[in-house]
């Protein structure tokens, strides 16, 4: 099935890289197809920016997302701007300390993670996006976690692989834990 993912945040949070890693994991390491489109223009230079990724076991024809089933937001602005776009029954993932989910929709499944704090605990705030996509991998089960790890290693600067893997696993483990709690 075609799954549409939208990631929103502000410039500098690694929104585009997150989309890139998800697409790369799916299409290179997980035997699926992926198409990524990044929002481009003045909005990508500081304020709200977003990446769109489509993941599909079959070839992807239409290249843009229509109604995402997964929405990851890392800023209040992105939450306000994009949360109405999420498909009913979709998964909403928010950064706990940056997003106050006001008027939270009742028809979506909501997960949140203090990813920025986790990243700071690991020593580098920069890896916040990797914590987020680790978390997403656990709660959505869309892409094989090993494929995601391979894509993280292949996509981050040399010498930072260990830190990024730790960040990924931190988010992933937290996601598994939350998911278990939700199920019980």
């Amino acid at each position: 099935m075609r799954t549409e993912i939208k990631i929103g945040g502000f410039g500098g949070q690694g929104v585009i890289l997150s989309g890139y890693i998800i697409g790369r994991a799916a299409s290179i390491y997980d035997n699926k197809y992926a198409t990524m489109i990044q929002s481009f223009g003045p909005e990508a230079r500081g304020s709200a920016c977003s990446a769109q990724v489509i993941v599909d076991p079959n070839e992807i024809a239409y290249p843009y997302i229509v109604q995402p089933q997964i929405l990851i937001v890392m800023s209040q602005e992105a939450y306000t701007k994009f949360s109405t776009e999420l498909a009913p029954g979709g998964i909403l993932i928010t950064e706990e300390e940056l997003v106050n989910p006001i008027n939270l929709r009742k028809d979506v499944i909501h997960y949140s993670i203090p990813a920025t704090r986790f990243a700071e605990e690991l020593g580098k705030r920069l890896v916040v996006n990797i914590v987020m996509i680790g978390f997403m991998t656990a709660v959505t089960e869309l892409i094989d976690p090993e494929a995601m790890q391979k894509a993280v290693i292949a996509s981050v600067p040399k010498g930072t692989e260990d830190l990024n893997l730790k960040a990924f696993n931190k988010g992933y483990d937290y996601g598994l834990k939350l998911k278990k709690e939700k199920a019980s």
């Binding site: 198409t35 990524m36 290249p63």
Partner: peptide, 9 residues
């Protein structure tokens, strides 16, 4: 532009 800025395998 769409093909140019689209990322795929």
């Amino acid at each position: 532009e769409c093909v140019g800025h689209m990322t795929e395998r």
